[in-house]
Design a protein around this nucleic acid. Structure first.
Length: 493
RNA sequence: GGUCCCAUCGUCUAGCGGUCUAGGAUAUCGGCCUCUCACGCCGGAGACACGGGUUCGAUUCCCGUUGGGACUACCA
């Protein structure tokens, strides 16, 4: 019987949740879901300078929005500082660590020298072999010290099998005696993280590849503490189009999860897209429901190659990775309308054009209208912008089609008038009837129907494009169509 | 500088020695549909970084070069 899987996502609350972090969270979550394991959220807030409560709230909100649920936590690393220090004390006692009295200045100087000589910048182990008397003497003199792990010396190496990258070996001589506790008594990440993982019983560490290089150090800590070493699965990093690691500093909002929430992404569509960054199935399948993704997920599908989040700043057509948009658009047009409904509602509310009746007597109409227009929308905000004319009479008319479809044809001034009257008189405002009236009128006046149709479209929607005109007329409704046609006459001044 | 990781269309990727004249998706271009736009459908262009091996045979295995990335803090 295999032991139960326990994974964790340990963000440090120094800003919003960005897509790299979200991706890590998603993979951990998927693995837990897939294996029936446990997913723990742990906030690593030990960097007091940079951590903030606001950031914690933001991260949690983003995770919730994505639909990433955790079974335990959030725990806060800062609450376990005592444990971390106790672990260091234990290591000191068991001879796995030692006190180092070197000052920061000394070390910086040595490092600088090494750099000049182009040698490795490792700590030289100056305090490693201090006698107990020397240590006592320095302590008595009130000298501050850091605690360093005593890395085994000699020919051996640390070895582990990463689930994604395979066997990784690191020679002891390439690992310096690294600091695990600061001179002010604060434990360091490399220690705290390991101690927390041991306490939480983490069985699989799934994290970014940037953790790969210090995994040997952590394994050394596990071993020195006599704890079982978890399995590791490192995932490739997410880079920007210039192949630089994505960061809040250089990319700002465009890499923040909340940015996608605000820009009309469906949470699951975004998760689906993120899951596809650096993970795939043998059949290259792309669209997965939640259940399907969990079913299909496997750590084996994680790629070793860094992937690029193709953000396009200042691209008029794509405000972010086109693939992300295309997946979102795919969901918008294929989801059962009822599932899309709440998101559209949210956008209309935000735009101040929500009518409570859309949830009651007009709900049928509301759903039909969403269904009518959704195939050309990419983000849910489009319903309130491009689709505004369906939900509000206060919509603007695009000057380009106004000129091309309306003003260019002077006859429309009169025909809109006539048409408005005729449409007002139609008893059954149906697809067939409206089409008949309009086509007959075009013939009567010797016009190509297209000219009349495009003119009406622009008058009624303010736009040059959209669904088939007769569908539009039905959706907008007889009364409003007549009104809008009469109003359009004013365009001729 | 040192250690480590990686390398297939612009991007996300399939491929795990012959099935590859390299598949899918997205983006892009052309066509069909048509009252416009989108959807949908059809088609085009577009990649195995380079050089050595190993092998009857390399995109696939090994080595090197080049390129990219990570780590290298008393940050997490």
């Amino acid at each position: 019987m295999a032991e139960k899987v326990i994974v964790r996502f340990p963000p440090s609350p120094t800003g919003y949740l960005h897509i790299g972090g979200a991706r890590t969270a998603i993979f951990n979550w998927l693995f837990a879901q897939k294996t029936g394991g446990k997913f723990i959220l742990r906030i690593e807030d030990t960097d007091v300078e940079r951590s903030s409560e606001e950031s914690v709230r933001g991260i949690i909100e983003s995770l919730k929005w994505l639909g990433i649920t955790w079974d335990e936590g959030p725990y806060f690393q800062s609450q376990f500082t005592k444990e971390h220090v106790a672990a260091a004390r234990k290591l000191l006692k068991t001879g796995h660590a030692y006190e180092c009295f070197c000052t920061k200045e000394e070390l910086d100087r040595k490092r600088e020298e090494a750099r000049k000589k182009k040698a490795a910048l490792q700590y030289d182990g100056a305090c490693r072999n201090l006698t107990p008397e020397e240590v006592a003497e320095k302590e008595a003199a009130g000298m501050q010290y850091t605690i360093r792990l005593k890395v085994p010396r000699g020919e051996g190496f640390v070895s582990f099998e990463d689930i994604v990258y395979g066997i990784i070996e690191k020679k002891y001589q390439d690992i310096e005696d690294f600091v695990i506790v600061r001179s002010n008594g604060q434990p360091l990440y490399v220690l705290s993280n390991a101690v927390d993982d041991i306490r939480d019983g983490i069985t699989h560490v799934i994290r970014g590849q940037d953790g790969l290089a210090n995994t040997p150090k952590q394994i050394l800590i596990y071993k020195a503490l006599g704890a079982p070493v978890p399995k590791f699965a490192h995932m490739s990093l997410t880079l920007d189009p210039k192949k630089a690691k994505i960061s809040k500093r250089t990319h700002g909002e465009s890499v923040a999860v909340h940015f996608y929430k605000e820009h009309g992404f469906l949470p699951w569509a975004f998760v689906n897209y993120l899951a596809l960054l650096g993970w795939s199935t043998p059949d290259s399948r792309e669209i997965f429901s939640k259940e399907e993704l969990i079913e299909a997920f496997s750590l084996k599908g994680i790629s070793r190659v860094n992937c690029i989040f193709n953000v396009r700043k200042d691209d008029p057509k794509f405000f972010t990775d086109p693939k992300a948009i295309s997946i979102n658009a795919n969901y918008i047009r294929n989801l059962p309308v009822e599932e899309l409904e709440p998101y559209v509602r949210e956008q209309l509310e935000k735009a101040g054009i929500w009518d409570p009746d859309y949830a009651r007597e007009k709900r049928d109409w509301f759903l039909r209208t969403i269904d009518l227009i959704r195939s050309r929308y990419h983000v849910t905000t489009d319903f309130a912008t491009l689709g505004r004319c369906y939900f509000s009479d206060d919509y603007s008319t695009d000057p380009k089609p106004l000129k091309k479809n309306i003003l260019k044809h002077e006859g429309l001034k009169e025909w809109f008038h006539i048409l408005a009257d005729r449409l007002e008189d139609v008893e059954e405002f149906t697809l067939e009837e409206t089409e008949r009236v309009i086509r007959e009128m075009a013939e009567e006046f010797g016009f190509k129907a297209g000219i009349l149709i495009n003119g009406i479209r622009t008058a009624v929607t303010g736009q040059p494009k959209g669904p088939g005109l007769f569908d539009v007329l039905i959706a907008v409704g007889q009364h409003r169509v007549v009104q809008r046609l009469r109003k359009a006459v004013k365009f001729f001044g």
